[in-house]
Each structure stands twice: as structure tokens, then as C-alpha cells.
Design a binder for these strands. Structure first.
Lengths: 346, 346
DNA sequence: TTGTAGGCGTTATCAC
DNA sequence: GTGATAACGCCTACAA
């Protein structure tokens, strides 16, 4: 701790304080901060350097951004922070953003369009330089507004084609095809599709559609085994699950879920119902959370390259910010089927 | 979309634009924004209101903060965003902050003091109004610096008494006592304590200490069954686990872990080793992640009121910001032992 | 190589 | 009730 910074409430240090202490003008300090060292005499540089050290000075990002009309902030709105998918994305995105001098404003919409809208507005007030959003699909106009303000928006996992925005997600068609065909090869008589209500969530619509397509193509009888369940109401949820199990009693059967959170809920129920996996029932889910290898001796998963998706999304935002690209782009990653105990080979 | 806002790059709307459109001065608009409606004529209010609507105006938080020396930003640094503990905390904290007009800057240190330090600096540059930190314990001087700048800091889960800062966490003493005594009642001959390396992480030190205390008090033989393992090196990790299992072969045995992530790693290994829980080994862990009821038919847990802890931490920050409190305060929540299949009653 | 002046979007102060 | 005007902390001309 240095003199002038002793005791309480040393009024926050500004560029002016640094200039004064170094015996130079604010401009010179600003040049130093901006890394324009060529324009500075060696001696001046040194003086500024030590003044900054001594005062523990940190330039105000907000003030800096005010003039330059940049916030160095990138918003990330995710649908459910409890989903391991989300946290993996965040880690990927953070890695890239911090390397490029940007900080994240992470928001969790809890899949609620209203919350999502509030976050968008909040982020606009903070003048974010870009946005990555795992959207509920219920705020298209707000997103378009950002686009009109020429703030780069990248849609994550859930696409909205009519918005014509950058998109990073999974190749659901191939993922469904590979995994479902794998199940079909095992000759399950009944394969149930479980999803939470679709709402405006494109991923769920897509996965359902592709699921049906593959079934039809293979003339499989399960096209009625579709269960759209809300996990909020655990009673109804249990009943729907039971209804499938009853209906397919005595047949070889499998459950396919659109995400891992849902699978975990189902696992929970199966556990209390004392249904043994895979003896009585097989399981396959999207995502590969860290508990997947353990539950029921391992649950078969469609793994997504989540970290890379986060990296990719952030890179797309940065490209746009730098003006390196002006037309929207879509990037689909391939999923990877990881076979485990919950779907034994026949 | 309204005239004057059509097309591309409608230069970002400012308070000046609103004033012009409403035919009043910036000052009046500012009064409106600040909610000082008494000072405004009904008619003026109306004009401003519609101008704001029509222009889709959102005041710049940064500019506002510049003048008011407030950022309306609260930093949250967590140690590992993949830990369900963290996400629960975040949800609690967010609920309170947004209700009070603050936004979060969430950072994930990955338990790396270096990253943590960078985040602290970054947050200082953004002039956060307060900080909640699940600290690695390796940045005391940076935290003190914030304190000197009179920025409220609340320590989460991991305390550092010499910093004399606000703290919210778990009553580890009672939690360990209750859970370990429960195990002792079941007459396990060997109870192993598994933790990741302590480093400067107070929680781990504490839990270890209390664990030993209870063992000693009960004259139990397990005081040597301490395993400090890094999950990075899965080979050594496996060996340490094996070493305990070998060592305690034929005896009734249990494993106690300091957090759920570690327990999951262990569960993974047990799975591949084909060790049956609870027949051959019992398990008990801190935290109660959503997979806990499912793995091995249910793992016994010490549940923490995570959401409430997040709420509490944020409330403490806000109190400080409002100047309602000036002396540091500690708040210890009680854990709750949830008994499941992994620790059957004898 | 350095410094002065003005402006970024907002609020606070002080007149009218 | 209302409106100039001067900050806030920084950066960018432009000048010296």
C-alpha cells in the first residue's frame, strides 16, 4: 500500500490522478493505456508505469466505452443454467471472450420468455457489444431490434430461421438418425419419445420431426409413442411414464429423451418404481452429463461437443464485432453416440 | 418500428433524442428516468413517455453510472460452475439482484487463483458495486484492496477470517457431527475421508478437522483413512481408492466425500470396478445434486440450502451497498442429512 | 513527443 | 416545473 492510497475510501483512482502523479498529461496516460507506446518517450512511459503501479490504477471500462461506444461486454442468455449443457457452453465462450478482452454478462432465463425479455433489455442498457442466446423463442422482436441496432446476435442450439441470424448448434437430423437406427437394429418393439412441451423451442420440434421421419422410413410401429410431458407436474409426469410402461408391457421397449434433465427425472421415477434398466427397459438420451456413465451402470447418450460449441459461438460474435463478416452463417456440429449399459446389444 | 428508427444503424438513441422528440429538455427526461415524477407536469410526463416508447429508448447504464459512480453491476466469482452447488447459488443471487435493479457479472475461476485474480481485476475495471466470491483463497491482497476501496465483498462457502469480511456458508461442524455420528451408529469399521487437495480452501480444512475431531471423540480407528486426491490424475486417483478398498477388505466400510463432484468421480470408479453399493461399501457426501437420488439407488447426502445461501449472500451485499451495515457478519446455514440407499441402517 | 479542448450519455446543481 | 451547464472518466482530434 502506497501513500495517497492509505486509509479509507481513497476516492477511486482516475486517469487524472495517474497523470498528476506521473507529472504528465491525461493524454499521455491514455496513450499508454491504449498501448500506443511508440508515441511515448521511454522516460514518460516509465513514469506512467510506476504511477499506475503505485496507485493501483485500473481504467474504468465503462468510461472508456462511453467515448468509444463499446462496452467490452458480451451478453450470454442461457435457458437453464442447471443444465450441464449450459455450463459447458459458458466455459467455452468465456475462454475465448477473455482472451479477446471481453467480459461476459451471463443470464439465466429459466426457459421463461418474460425473464428472457427482461434480460435482453437489461443487456441493451448495458450496451453489450454482442449477444449469444439459447432462446426460448418467444422474443423475436426484441432480437430483431438488436439486429437493427447492428449488435451481433448468435443463436445457440435453438434456431429461428426467419430471424436470419448466426447460428451454432447440433446436427439433429444425423444425431437422431444414428441413434434411432441403432435402437432399431436392436429390434425394440416400442421406442418412446419423451420431450418437455415444445413451445417455440426449435430443437424439440426438430428432434420430434426427425424421430418420426426415421420411424416412418423404417415402418416402425412406435409413431404413437410420443410423450410430451412437463416435469413441473410430477404427478402427471409419473402417470405418462406409467402409461407407456403399461402399454408396452411384455414388449421390448426403450425410451428416448430430448435432453438429459428429462432423462434424469425419468431415471428418478424408474428408481422408485423399481424398474430395472436395461432388463426391463432401455434408455437413450441427448447430452452426456457427468452422471451419465454412472446411472444404471451407464446411460447411452448422444454427446454434443458443448465446449466447442461455446467457443464457436463466441468466435462468431467476435467476427461480427470486428466486421469480418456480414452475412449470417450456420454451424452444425455432429453429435456422437456413446453406447453404454442402458442399451445392451442384442 | 417507428420513423426515425428505420433501416440500419439508427445511431443509438440517447436521452437527447428523447428530449428533442418530446420537445423538452434532457433534464426533464432524466427526471422521468430517475422516477422523480412529482417534479414533472402531467403533460410533460406523457410526452416523455411516448417519446421513449416510440424511440425504443433504453438509458445507458454505463453513462448513468459514470456520473453517479455506480455501475449497477455485482460481481460473482464462483470456483466451479460445473458444480450444481454453484448454479443453485447463482439462481438465488440473481433473483435478489434483479429485483433490486442490479445485474450480475458471473465469473468462473475453475478453482484457479490466477484466473480468479484476473477476474477480480476485470471486475474492478467494470467498477462493480459489490462482490460475492467463492474464493480459491489465493487472492487475499486483491480482496483487501476492494475492501479498502469500500466495495462490499461477501465470502461464500469458504471463509478467510483474517480478512474480516461478510461470510455466508454452511455450519460444517454440525454437518460433520450429524453425518459422521450417523455413520458411527451403523458401526462401520472403516470410514474413509476423501477430499481434493486443501490448498487455501477453508471448507476442506474445516471439514477435515471436524471429521478428525468426531472420530477422536468416539475413539474410532479410522483417523488414518484420509485420502487427499486430485481428480486430475485419474490413475493416481484410482490407486488411492483401491488402496483404501484393499486395506479395508473384509471390514464394513464407508466413504465420506467433501463434495459431490468428488463423489461422482468415485462412483464412476466403483462402477468400473464392479463394486456394489451399499453391499460392499457405503457412501455419504456433502451436497445433494440432482443425480444423488438415482446413483446406486440413492446416495446419502448432506444437503445445503444452496438457493437460500445465494439469496442471503446477495442480501448482504445490498445491505452494505445501501450502507445499512458497516460491521462484518457471518451467517452459517445448517445442513440436512438425507439418508438414502447408500448408507443402509444396520 | 506532448498537451489542450471537446465530447461520449447521463445526472446534479442552480438558476429562471 | 423547467432548463442551461457542469461534471463523471476516458479517448480522440488537433495543436504545439
Amino acid at each position: 500500500m502506497i501513500e495517497g492510497k492509505v486509509g479509507k475510501v481513497a476516492q477511486k483512482v482516475t486517469i487524472y490522478d495517474v497523470a498528476k502523479r506521473a507529472g504528465v498529461s491525461k493524454t499521455s496516460v491514455s496513450r499508454y493505456l491504449g498501448g500506443r507506446l511508440e508515441e511515448l518517450a521511454e522516460k514518460t512511459k516509465k513514469k506512467i508505469e510506476s504511477a499506475i503501479q503505485e496507485l493501483d490504477y485500473r481504467p474504468s471500462t465503462a468510461a472508456r466505452g462511453l467515448k468509444g461506444r463499446k462496452s467490452y461486454l458480451i451478453g450470454v442468455i442461457i435457458a437453464d443454467i442447471r443444465n450441464p449443457y449450459s455450463t459447458a457452453i459458458l466455459r467455452g465462450a468465456e475462454e475465448i471472450s477473455s482472451k479477446n478482452g471481453y467480459s461476459l454478462m451471463i443470464c439465466n432465463s429459466d426457459n421463461d420468455p418474460e425473464k428472457e425479455k427482461n434480460f435482453i433489455h437489461m443487456l441493451q442498457s448495458h450496451r453489450i457489444d454482442g449477444l449469444i442466446i439459447h432462446t426460448t423463442g418467444g422474443n423475436n422482436s426484441s432480437l430483431l431490434e438488436m439486429k437493427d441496432d447492428s449488435i451481433p446476435v448468435v443463436l445457440l442450439d435453438r434456431n429461428i430461421p426467419e430471424l436470419d441470424m448466426d447460428f451454432v448448434g447440433l446436427d439433429n437430423r444425423t444425431a437422431i438418425k444414428d441413434s434411432l437406427e441403432f435402437l432399431l437394429q436392436q429390434d425394440y418393439q416400442r421406442i418412446a419419445f419423451f420431450s418437455e412441451p415444445f413451445h417455440e423451442i426449435s430443437t424439440r420440434h426438430e428432434r420430434y420431426q426427425f424421430f418420426q421421419d426415421v420411424l416412418k422410413k423404417n415402418n416402425h410401429e412406435s409413431s404413437e409413442d410420443i410423450y410430451i410431458v412437463s416435469t413441473e407436474d410430477s404427478c402427471r409426469f409419473r402417470n405418462k411414464l406409467l402409461s407407456f410402461l403399461e402399454d408396452a408391457k411384455g414388449q421390448s421397449r426403450a425410451i428416448f429423451t430430448v435432453n438429459a434433465l428429462l432423462m434424469l427425472k425419468i431415471a428418478n421415477e424408474l428408481n422408485t418404481m423399481n424398474i430395472s434398466v436395461p432388463d426391463e427397459l432401455s434408455l437413450l438420451t441427448f447430452d452426456n452429463p457427468d452422471w451419465a456413465p454412472v446411472v444404471f451402470g451407464g446411460i447411452t447418450c448422444i454427446e454434443q461437443p458443448t465446449f466447442e460449441i461455446g467457443v464457436s459461438a463466441m468466435n462468431m460474435v467476435l467476427e461480427r464485432i470486428r466486421g469480418e463478416r456480414t452475412t449470417s452463417e450456420s454451424f452444425l456440429y455432429k453429435g456422437k453416440l456413446i453406447k453404454r449399459n442402458s442399451t445392451p446389444l442384442m
